[in-house]
Amino acid sequence: MSGPTPARRTVWLAAALLLAVLAAIALWRLFARPAPPPVPVEELRLAVNAEYVGSCPVLAAHGQGYFAREGIHARLQSYSSGKASLEAVLQGQADLGTVSDIPVVLASLKNQSVVIIASIFEAERDHGIVGRLDRGVSTPASLKGKRIGVTQGTSGQFALDAFLNRQKLLPGEVTLRNYAPDQLAAALARGEVDAAAGWEPFLTAMTHAIAGKAAIFYGEDVYAGLFNVAGAGDYVRAHPATMRRVLRALIAGARFCQDEPDAARALFARASASEAARMQAAWHGYQFGVVLDQGLLLALEDEARWAIKNRLGERGDMPNFLDAVYLDGLEAVAPSAVTVIH
């Protein structure tokens, strides 16, 4: 049987050459397409309590490049409390801040527009009271008549009041003294107060400041701490695209903190050896996640009743805390994470 004629071979070769040329043109067109324009980089000033474990999603979003991936150049500003972080936001020194629920309540009662874009952390065994055994503080009931240091206007004060109420102690049966969170350990060591209320890592610092003389009472049955990211209402609502980008970065950061505990704890490089050990032991009880839960609104209302009763705000009526929660961002990014009834 004879092979293809020279004419046929020429046709096949021409066809093969044409296909090769067309394939080359197609590949050239594919790879010669201009790259998509880069995501514009936006600078964001974020006030954060960098030593508090609840800030882990923010620190991870920064350290692991999740903010950068979303086109955000995050500048972290360190503060010793959520109250101080929120004050920075309200004074225009930061765009967003990490804060517990109490400062948001107090801002609302002062008619300051603050909105939470998400809760990022929850822990029960996180607040407590450290007392000096040599001053007669050995049981919760023995706090009666004692001087107690606390950072007023924070979750530490709310947890302390709830704890005293559980012991059937009236506010007038103790003497409160106001200190910044990082000053409580020294005040306790100097004997200026008989006990001090606060949260980690300051509780650990207090116990070490009076080593061998410390009694510690945790408030897990009276207060479950929520840690949030919040901003001024006008700023948040005027930057919806930015909020979505921030939330996507925080979701990745929270996942990192939950799934990579060893690497996440390394973000707190300044922690003392004792605090690092405590953090490792307690890590399994921490809940990292980016949510807006109905429980947040219930907590804000409960805390507002407490604040109104203690005349801590300018108004005596209950605010509508739906105005203090920004739902649009998280509903766009992770709608299943929003359970607020609205």
Rank of each mutant, 00 (worst) to 15 (best):
M1F: 12
H62K: 15
L330P: 04
S55Q: 07
V246C: 00
G253R: 00
A277G: 12
E220R: 13
R315G: 10
G212D: 08
A107N: 03
P319N: 06
F321D: 00
E331A: 13
T151W: 01
L300M: 11
M1Q: 11
M1T: 12
N49S: 15
T207K: 14
A14H: 08
A277C: 07
L22S: 11
L22E: 09
V338G: 00
A195V: 02
A307R: 01
A84N: 07
H208L: 14
L13C: 11
V89E: 04
G219L: 03
R166H: 11
R305C: 02
H239K: 13
L267N: 01
F268Y: 12
I72Q: 00
S55K: 05
V174Y: 02
L90S: 07
D323Q: 15
A159K: 00
L298S: 14
R278E: 14
Q287T: 12
S272F: 10
G219T: 15
P34L: 11
A215T: 03
T204M: 10
K213Y: 09
F202G: 00
E314Q: 15
A123W: 01
N111S: 15
L76E: 00
Q287L: 11
K213V: 06
A107T: 05
A16H: 03
H239A: 04
D134K: 09
Y223P: 01
Q64A: 12
P40K: 10
V115E: 10
R45L: 13
V39K: 14
A159D: 03
A32V: 08
V229W: 04
Q294D: 12
G82V: 05
M279C: 09
A214K: 02
R135Y: 07
A276M: 11
S100L: 05
I210D: 02
C56G: 06
F121W: 09
V137Q: 00
P4Y: 14
E173W: 09
A159H: 01
D234N: 12
A195I: 00
G329Q: 06
A186T: 12
S119F: 01
L250K: 04
A107C: 08
A159R: 00
F256H: 06
P57M: 06
S55P: 05
A186E: 14
S155P: 02
V53L: 13
E124I: 06
L59P: 00
Y79V: 01
Q280P: 01
A189Q: 11
G253C: 04
A180K: 09
L292N: 05
Y52C: 12
L76A: 02
I25G: 11
E331Y: 05
F217G: 03
S85V: 09
L30H: 15
V325C: 05
S78H: 15
K213W: 05
A32I: 05
C56S: 06
A141F: 10
G233N: 10
A14N: 08
M1R: 11
M318R: 07
L90F: 06
A32L: 11
S113N: 12
V21H: 07
A299C: 03
Q280I: 02
L17F: 10
L109W: 02
I210G: 02
S113P: 08
A211R: 14
L90D: 04
A187T: 03
S119T: 13
A88D: 02
L59C: 05
A205D: 12
F217D: 04
R132E: 03
A14L: 15
T151G: 04
E173S: 13
H62W: 14
K144P: 06
S336H: 13
T339P: 03
R8Y: 14
Y79M: 07
D262K: 14
T98I: 06
